[in-house]
């Protein structure tokens, strides 16, 4: 049975029931980055935390809290503390708290560490929010609409798929090398030694795969001189959305100016 409703869905713009998800991808990125920029001008960790909270709220508003929170915490809890430690331990300052050899903990270092760590939370927030609220193909569609050539979008999209494919491929190669007697289980040294037999097939496989893919895409008229069309499309940005984005930008610009002046 042919699913007519599904096929008909290509006749109208791709829309979901969520207003935030329906925003044009470029506008979403605009808003997220504008919010993130605030951190650079205020230099207060409390501001960074508030912006992080705003990102979490946006994820909730998009109905994507579940898919947002887990990668955000994983990423944030690794990168944030890392920046904190690096800054806190090595930053020189007047108010010494602890000193042993090259380890030199100062109040200034700790303050700066908190500052950096919370900025990293904001950066992670932007990245994860982009991945959970923007479909890659919608992004490339809107890029093409503003004049980016479609082979660039092909490169973006296929690199994303390549990462997924490489992960699967690595597992297969690991299995086949273990079956040849190469020890991959055990301590760090064993694992490092197992690296070469895995990397080289992965690398060569990717090259020959790329060649075949070029030929396959050539057969799909990729080199066609005609301007390409789009089966799947997005709605033209509504006036209200344009106004919203401009307002957000002006508001944030205002905040920043305020922050700099203060």
């Amino acid at each position: 049975m042919m699913d007519e409703t599904f096929i008909n869905s290509y006749r109208s713009p791709q829309l979901s029931k969520n207003w935030l998800l329906n925003l044009n991808p470029l506008n979403k990125i605009n808003i997220y980055i504008a919010l993130g920029l605030i951190t650079l001008f205020f230099q207060h960790w409390q501001v960074n935390v508030v912006i992080t909270l705003v990102f979490i709220l946006l994820a909730v508003a998009a109905g994507r809290f579940k898919s947002f929170i887990s990668p955000f915490l994983k990423l944030g809890l690794v990168i944030g503390p890392f920046f904190f430690i690096v800054r806190a331990i090595f930053w020189p300052g007047e108010n010494m708290i602890f000193n042993y050899g090259i380890i030199n903990i100062t109040q200034e270092g700790i303050d700066l560490g908190i500052q950096y760590a919370t900025i990293m939370l904001v950066v992670c927030g932007i990245l994860v929010l982009c991945t959970v609220t923007i479909k890659a193909e919608d992004l490339t569609y809107s890029l093409e609409k503003i004049g980016v050539p479609h082979n660039i979008s092909f490169m973006i999209l296929s690199s994303l798929q390549l990462i997924i494919d490489l992960k699967d491929k690595t597992n297969v190669i690991m299995d086949s090398q273990r079956s040849r007697g190469i020890e991959t289980e055990g301590n760090v040294f064993v694992r490092i030694k197992a690296f070469v037999p895995v990397l080289s097939p992965l690398f060569l496989g990717a090259i020959s795969g790329a060649e075949e893919k070029t030929i396959a895409m050539d057969a799909r008229a990729f080199s066609s001189a005609n301007p390409n069309t789009h089966l799947r499309f997005l709605r033209p940005t509504p006036a209200l959305e344009k106004i919203l984005v401009i307002l957000v930008d002006i508001l944030i610009l205002g905040l920043i100016i305020l922050g700099v002046v203060l």
């Binding site: 491929k169 297969v172 190669i173 299995d175 086949s176 090398q177 079956s179 040849r180 007697g181 070469v196 037999p197 080289s200 097939p201 060569l204 496989g205 020959s208």
Partner: peptide, 15 residues
């Protein structure tokens, strides 16, 4: 050392 396993795709095993 007892059971050899030749995978379907030789390119996964050769390096």
């Amino acid at each position: 050392q007892y059971v050899g396993y030749v995978f379907q795709n030789p390119d996964d095993q050769i390096f």
